[in-house]
Nucleic acid binder design. Structure first.
Lengths: 341, 341
DNA sequence: CTGAAAGCGCTAACAG
DNA sequence: CTGTTAGCGCTTTCAG
């Protein structure tokens, strides 16, 4: 139904090839012919069929973005960063929600590959899914950039943060604020949660602070999870006076639980999150958090992916670590000395 | 490089068609042959090339989603609703950010059309872009569902809210809470902001409340805009004691401005937002807002689009209005009587 | 500068 | 049950 090149060619009495070249601004077409073609194309409201073009050029100008949760602002910010970089180059984003589930993720990757996307940006749901992805991608050597979470044992492009540093930074900050019973609400499975936990543990060790085993609870990635986890922490005989949280939504949930228990933030329990999502400043208690440069992560990932897609031969995998930064706000400020905000 | 049907066919000494049918579970293939094909396909890690398939079937199983801002939770929630409905049917989402700009939106729609998506869900940036879209879509009769914002003069599928009711509901609520100087921070251009403004005006008229012209200010869609708009309102000689805001981010920004001015919410200025985004409950002051059923909007839009895509002939455009609901929280609760939360 | 031939990987329609 | 023919709309050679 829509106009094809063939239609234009026949209308003008020229060959299909002439039309094809004219439309793509090839040099070896006379200005006169080109104008006629362009004019007729406009009249017919001609739109190139990218499907057909893709079949022969083997480029779709689509990149797949697989994230665990569209609704988590962190990923929305990352997605925006990616878009900002690849959009001007004519790429579009096919987005998939893995819902933090490895099988769903694999299915989505399969589909994306079948769709012949030119590249992939993935925040892997769990480390378990590493094997499948490796097969799916390596075999077809589809350019791929991992974000936010590495995949243990998989040599791949990665853009993210130094998670152990995040954990350390947050924990030491709580200590500096006078907290001595520092707990951690950790994430499930993914490499970043492991790294943050490690940072937390190392900081405690360095500070010679011993805390009960029960001070590490699992409760992520949503604020409801954080809320529940915090309630468990508050129920402990010796409840914590500082909590470092896997991400900002979890921290927001934790704050909710603390306030609901009739306690104060930060006086009774100080809270630190991770990610510095956009609304963390507007929360019930403005949230101290470790900024990961989410938009920057997206941008770097976009840039790197573009480089890979343009390269003739597979590039050596790179690791890009975006600097992190502690943003001190009210949820942890217990001393005069605390700066920032 | 990846395996093709042809490879399987040659390896097995059967025809390409046999492979094609076996792979798609056509009935007229013997179990034995099918098994051989399937086995070889697995060995070669065969993946169907959807581009090639699409070219002949004329279906891409991709739908375009064009929204003004990925980072606004409202649209993230809508997107998730859409995904929930179309995902199980094998459709994937190509997402585009229009950044509230009509030209960007048109460009994106163009690309999406060229990519031959099977359908489109669009939250139009501004009413101005109506004409182009109409051409782009009607001409190629590409199934399309508008969400959140109608396009004046365009007879099209729509899923959204009764915006004048939202405006009325919020305004009357503020009145019931004792506010008598009720202002409105409105959005720019889009039909929904016009509707909400109308609702606000009508409610005032019905209540026989007269307010200065300066009580309607434009400041959307981001929280920064709301913050600035609120500052302007606070600078008025006769400052408002209640403000109805275009959306929740704007309301959050407004609250920020009020508190920063040393005033209290809701005692000095009560605030009502729109959208009931997920984190509105966690805000500095928990936000009273009009819930639009964002996820439901996405789901209905997804369902409707699927119906359109499956239909042989274009369906008559439908309007689906998802019920709205006032959610009363602390930002406006000035009387005992106020219910909900 | 213009065009003819060949084919991307797959499927619809029909024959055997 | 299996295979042949034709072609989706476009681009990449390569000849004029």
């Amino acid at each position: 139904m829509p106009a094809r090149m063939k239609d234009i060619a026949e209308d003008l009495g020229v060959s299909l090839m002439t039309v094809s070249k004219a439309l793509r601004n090839h040099t070896d077409i006379s200005q006169a012919t080109r104008n006629r073609v362009l004019a007729r194309a406009r009249e017919l409201d001609y739109q190139p069929n990218w499907i057909a073009r893709s079949l022969v050029t083997r480029r779709t100008y689509a990149v797949g973005l697989v994230i665990p949760d569209l609704m988590h602002s962190f990923f929305a910010e990352v997605a925006k960063g990616v878009a900002r970089k690849i959009d001007p180059l004519g790429y579009q984003i096919v987005i998939s929600n893995s819902e933090e589930d490895g099988d769903t993720e694999d299915r989505q990757l399969e589909l994306l590959a079948a769709r012949k996307v030119d590249g992939l940006i993935v925040a892997p749901a769990s480390s378990r899914s590493g094997s499948r992805m490796l097969g799916t991608l390596r075999a077809r050597n589809l350019p791929c950039v991992l974000i936010d979470r590495t995949l243990p044992g998989l040599e791949a492009n990665f853009v993210g943060s130094r998670d152990d540093e995040i954990g350390r930074m947050a924990t030491e900050h709580l200590w500096e604020q006078g907290c001595r019973r520092i707990a951690h609400i950790r994430g499930t499975g993914a490499a970043n949660s492991v790294g943050r936990l490690r940072g937390y543990r190392r900081a405690l060790a360095k500070l010679r602070l011993e805390v009960p085993k029960e001070y590490v609870v699992t409760g992520a990635p949503h604020d409801e999870d954080g809320y529940q986890a915090m309630r468990r922490l508050l129920a402990l005989a010796d409840r914590p006076d500082g909590v470092y949280c896997y991400n900002d939504p979890v921290a927001a949930g934790a704050i909710q639980a603390v306030l609901e228990a009739g306690l104060r933030v930060p006086e009774d329990v100080a809270i630190v999150g991770t990610g510095n999502v956009h609304y963390s400043d507007l929360l019930r208690v403005p949230l101290t958090t470790v900024d990961q440069g989410s938009a920057r992560i997206g941008e770097e990932a976009g840039d790197l992916l573009v480089k890979c897609m343009l390269a003739k031969t597979p590039l050596k995998p790179r690791h890009i670590l975006v600097p992190v930064r502690l943003v001190v706000r009210e949820s942890s400020r217990r001393t005069r000395a605390a700066v920032g905000g």
